[in-house]
Design a binder for these strands. Structure first.
Lengths: 212, 212
DNA sequence: ATGCATGAGGT
DNA sequence: ACCTCATGCAT
DNA sequence: ATGCATGAGGT
DNA sequence: ACCTCATGCAT
């Protein structure tokens, strides 16, 4: 398990970079380059089979082992996941792909993708409807986040009241915001690149937005 | 040429839908299904060659015929273009692909992608730096756009002043906003779908955002 | 492809 | 009662 | 992949 | 002087 609590309010630092953003080739004894190559060929072979990410996800539901959603497959192909996650998903996709290609060799063109599901939901708890924040609310949320990424309970109450959304929805927004920021380490990395020799253009066009 | 001026301020209507969003199979005598299939196999074969969209774009620069940027290739593969555009790009990609695969059959693995360009810019006019609008400015712009998608010269002046950006940058924002909206026709199309029979849940969770 | 929601596991 | 992390649903 | 910029062609 | 449309650059 990695160390906990490594976001000390400065918008810097990172815990679990995604593979895509990692520059090194081996992390925690995991060969990232190997995973990168598999992700690439997986995508090619999936497309050759003529299948969408959604279809693969449905097909996985029909197998014995663990299943993954379209979202997970999308993130795997983009390498938008931590090495640890990739290590879990990879064998599942690998095994499924092998079997799918075998069936394809024979003529079972129909049997590869899972049947179109008759969405058997309506079982168990109903999931809360997704909240959409208005642009105005997002302005407030983001500016509050810049002030403090870990607002206290009282602060959350006040923010929720200000923008007119449920308290818990605001709390979760901060959780998700923190989580997504962790995957954004590559922010401002290679800056000293080769450019035009003079700095004239650099000065001429200040990118400061407020200048009425 | 299609009819001009078909955005009568109601956020409805559409002139040039993209192929992706078109539901019919033939438009203006162009076989969309045919283009869809080519786009799919183009992507597969590009990936089999191990090339990125960027590399294809660079390779096209090295050929005689017309060249296209990575952006154009991306939009073609996603079918995020009008049928008319697709008809222009398609033969270019088709010819390039054939030649690339021939070279690949022989062993010229290196010669397929264009050489890494030593970006010979700094010739001719310098392009204006891209403007980034702050979330606050976007809130204003979008609300003004809802009021009127074709603000007069005076109105543009006043908006520019209000948000503190150059007048022309604001004008162009409205142009681009109108343009991108045209490609968004599929907004609210299939609404009468099969759902849970009762309407209880429909009422319980009003999606109106402001409810403090 | 991505933003909000869930749930397991932890303090 | 909060958090993180992996992951999914619905867009 | 996508938002702002450019330029051709048009009123 | 405005517009649309196709397209590119830089993110």
């Amino acid at each position: 398990m990695p160390s906990p609590h490594c976001l000390p309010d400065s918008t810097e630092d990172l815990c679990q970079p995604t593979i895509k953003q990692s520059t090194s080739n081996i992390v925690d004894g995991i060969d990232l380059e190997d995973i990168r190559e598999f992700a690439r060929t997986f995508k090619v072979r999936r497309l050759v089979l003529g299948l969408t990410q959604t279809q693969v996800g449905q097909a996985l539901c029909a197998t014995e082992g663990p299943a993954y959603s379209q979202s997970a497959i999308c993130r795997f192909e983009k390498l938008d996941i931590t090495p640890r996650s990739a290590l879990k998903i990879r064998p599942v996709l690998e095994n499924w792909l092998r079997e799918a290609e075998e069936k394809h060799q024979q003529g079972n063109l129909q049997q590869i993708a899972g049947m179109d599901f008759i969405n058997i939901s309506a079982i168990g708890k109903i999931r809360k409807r997704r909240t959409f924040f208005s642009p105005e609310a997002l302005v407030v949320l983001n500016s509050r986040f810049e002030q403090s990424s870990h607002p206290s309970g009282r602060e959350i109450n006040s923010i929720a009241q200000e923008i007119g959304y449920e308290r818990d929805v605001v709390r979760v927004w901060f959780c998700n915001k923190r989580q997504s920021l962790k995957h954004c380490q590559s922010f401002q990395r290679s800056r000293i690149n080769l450019k035009s020799s003079d700095s004239t253009e650099e000065d001429r066009n200040s990118s400061s937005p407020t200048q009425p």
